[in-house]
């Protein structure tokens, strides 16, 4: 038998193995194990950690809201201070109150 024939024979023998594949049978506990896995999955879905995850968008939105409010208060608060300082400067200049008198006016009204 030539080498080529031997290879052909091996190939055909290997191809035939496809038809002699072992057939499995599910064990008697298959459904019981499946039920246990489904219950475990359901429990995991209902766990507080998972439930917390469901509220995550709400918490994030609330945090964003708080941040925006703080930023707005800080910005407008600063703007108010700036306006107050400018008004004091104009007032002091108009009344010729510079130096110590100006400081006195600023400290008295500005507080």
């Amino acid at each position: 038998m030539s080498e080529e024939d031997r290879i052909k024979e091996r190939v055909e023998k290997t191809m035939r193995l496809m038809e002699t594949e072992e057939r499995l049978k599910a064990d008697p506990w298959f459904f019981t194990r499946l039920q246990a896995r489904i219950s475990a999955r359901n429990a995991e879905l209902l766990s507080p950690v998972r439930q917390g995850g469901r509220w995550r968008p709400v918490v994030l939105a609330a945090l964003a809201g708080v941040n925006i409010t703080i930023a707005a208060l800080w910005t407008f608060g600063n703007a108010e201070t700036r306006h107050k300082e400018t008004a004091m400067a104009y007032l002091a200049r108009d009344y010729g109150l510079t130096g110590e008198a100006g400081d006195w006016l600023y400290n008295t009204i500005g507080e």
Partner: peptide, 20 residues
């Protein structure tokens, strides 16, 4: 439901074929 007879019968009817 996981406990229902419906689901059990589906699993039992197909488990061997699916496993294979």
């Amino acid at each position: 439901h996981a406990e229902t007879a419906d689901f059990r019968s589906i699993v039992e009817a197909h488990q061997d074929r699916v496993l294979n």
